[in-house]
Design a binder for these strands. Structure first.
Lengths: 334, 334
DNA sequence: CTGAAAGCGCTTACAG
DNA sequence: CTGAAAGCGCTTACAG
């Protein structure tokens, strides 16, 4: 392979101007004979246009940044996979930023977002977004000249288009199911004070109790991050403390799976002694012992919406929130 | 926020040339007073250099592409997380490509890799690389003007620097342990004909049997992709077929966890009836029932090596393979 | 339908 | 230490 050919070599070889080559590249109308010669020259030279030159000239790169809360969590991994595929299908590259629950990294990203001249950014980090940094985020990003989409958190009130699940209703539904099937008390695992999505999910639990006239017992509401260890430790501690509960509604599948591990270690049978429900339907949940009852996700649908939005003119869409309903997946744990 | 300021506005405001601004930006020596004025102007205007213009001029973007086999698999997710963090720390962006075990997507990437003028590409897809596309990959990518690093597969013989685990030795070690503790027969789950890493891991099993003078029973070697479902189905089928085995060495943790689910569904006790060992140490493995004995990983170390290599001059490093030893993590399943 | 030319926003010899 | 100027590789009015 010889030195990288530029558009000028292609033009020369085809006997046309660089303008014509550019037109062929972007699918504008050119004479058929011209097009054929240009295409032949491109093939001969193995020419690939320089994306940076294109981007500089067009004022924008064909790239979307995805900010995820934690790529190690199953829901974020699935989402990332689907988004990358959907963007690739429309010719967009995916820059990944794993926030890892660090506010600092979010700030750093914001500090250099201008440099990149992005096509857009999608923020999927609902479990780490607190009111404080939501405001900061909105302020910094909203008037930039790019598409902004929020996943898992409704930010339409701030002028940011969003895609979200109806988590309050989902949790209310399974808590009602737990109440009907196993009775009170029901523990809530994963309150996460200050997290927007944590609050939203917990509100489904609160709602059912309010409807039933049951007072919330604070000892049965456990503040824990969305990971295995937190689920294990919270449940283990509750069991050691001798707290009584017939079931657990967890704020994520990882929490639920951690809770199941703790229940096993205390010799509890699931669901006979304690029933467990998660949210997220990560892959291990279908293979745990017992298999986990949970609420599903639609990463493919979300990805499709994102890819579509990223293509249009900036500001073309009303900043509304698309709400998706989660499927309730009943398995063996409840 | 006003219209995006360019380097020219900064220069004007500081009363210097754009060359001086550029020098301050890249840390070259300038008079202290000049530097101060430029820095002040940058701060005043909120100036952020246009990365595409910089990249075009420098002939290279500050971006590394990461090709992963399947981001939904725990080991790839952890690796991605660590690599992104390490690259970010040295000022490099991460473009993610999830191959999803599709040869087609690998080809598509290769077809447009020139366009991006990347700083480098790291290929972490050992379980999907067959001899055929390794050759293609090498051919296409090796003489490009960028850093190429292979993770999980030794490609030094093809002139590509690599980072790999000693999987043959790891598997041999645990299979020996299984043989000593539970005796014969030992099933091997996840042979994956045609996969380079699948072959490497399986060879550890072969080696022990050869050392012990045991003939391989082909019915106990199950060809299965590295995911839960495949682990479940292979094991379920073997159990239905009435095959006898005292333990299972799996080619991945997901396979092992799927196998455990199948064992449970057949009423087998683990490890009393069948012991199980995985490889990869994904997070759910520490919370499964029983917890999984497995071989660990060092994504942080790998990420550090990658970040370091991506910075140097291209071609500066000998294309050797760094071999990492996996820790053997004994838990309850064996 | 096509070409000559300007310009996107930087960096870097070159000269002083 | 600093500036004027060229040029990275494209795209796009503009004129024909």
């Amino acid at each position: 392979m010889k030195a990288k050919a530029g558009i000028l070599e292609v033009a020369r070889r085809a006997g046309v101007s660089t303008a014509s080559v550019s037109r062929v590249l972007s699918g504008q109308t050119v004479r058929e004979a011209t097009q054929a010669r240009v295409l032949a020259a491109i093939a001969d030279l193995g020419y690939q246009p320089n994306q940076m030159a294109q981007g500089l000239r067009r004022g924008r790169s064909a790239t979307v940044a995805l900010l995820v809360g934690d790529i190690e969590q199953g829901v974020y991994a699935s989402l990332t996979k689907e988004i990358q595929a959907a963007l690739e299908a429309v010719g967009l590259e995916l820059l990944l930023y794993n926030l890892g629950h660090s506010q600092e990294r979010l700030k750093q990203f914001l500090a250099r977002v201008d440099s990149m001249r992005l096509q857009g950014v999608v923020i999927a980090a609902s479990d780490m977004l607190t009111d404080d940094n939501i405001r900061m985020l909105v302020e910094k990003v909203n008037h930039h000249d790019l598409h902004v989409l929020s996943v898992g958190l409704s930010l339409d009130q701030f002028g940011i288009a969003s895609i979200n699940y109806d988590d309050r209703e989902s949790v209310a539904r399974s808590v009602r199911f737990l109440l009907d099937t196993y009775g009170w008390p029901i523990a809530y695992l994963g309150r996460i004070e200050g997290s927007a999505s944590g609050t939203q999910r917990f509100s489904g639990y609160e709602q059912v109790l309010a409807d039933e006239g049951i007072a919330i017992d604070r000892r049965l509401v456990w503040d824990a991050a969305y990971r295995y260890r937190a689920g294990f430790e919270s449940t283990d501690r509750a069991l050691r403390d001798g707290l009584l509960f017939r079931s657990i509604q967890a704020g994520s599948d990882e929490l639920a799976l951690g809770a199941i591990a703790a229940l096993h270690s205390h010799g509890k049978r699931i669901p006979e002694d304690v029933a467990v429900v998660g949210i997220g339907n990560v892959e291990p949940s279908a293979y745990s012992h017992p298999t986990l009852t949970t609420h599903g996700v639609y990463p493919d649908r979300i990805a499709k919406i994102i890819a579509k939005r990223m293509q249009g003119a900036i500001g073309a869409h009303a900043p509304e929130t698309v709400i998706l309903e989660r499927p309730f997946i009943q398995r063996a744990s409840a």
